[in-house]
Design a protein around this nucleic acid. Sequence first.
DNA 1: TACATGACAAGGC
DNA 2: CGCCTTGCCATGT
Length: 104
Amino acid sequence: MTPDEYVEAVLELVDRIPPGRVMSYGAVADALTERSGRASARLVGAIMARHGGGAPWHRVVNAAGALPPRLIAQARARWLAEGTPLRGTGVDMRAAAWWPEQGM
DNA sequence: TACATGACAAGGC
DNA sequence: CGCCTTGCCATGT
């Protein structure tokens, strides 16, 4: 799998996350590992940083349900607009976490 | 080759 | 909640 295809696989998966739900970086990495063999949360983060612009990036959060300070304002607005379950400053992972098998 | 850097994660305190 | 240490893996010096 070439790097470009890998990037595409990440973005494709992110695109399938339903509104109001989220996946953690680690979950994206795990789901992709079953398909492409290699992944890591850091790698997914790096890809989102470079190529996340055209995808629903606010549906990918860290394990705590949060995002870095630079993105939190935009993300909160979109979470509210989609009715994403929130808790404190971030997403309620217990209620909002999504996995490809279940939500389709 | 070696080291530093990230939209990260898990475990200890 | 927080902070710190390890482990992780592609990218860039």
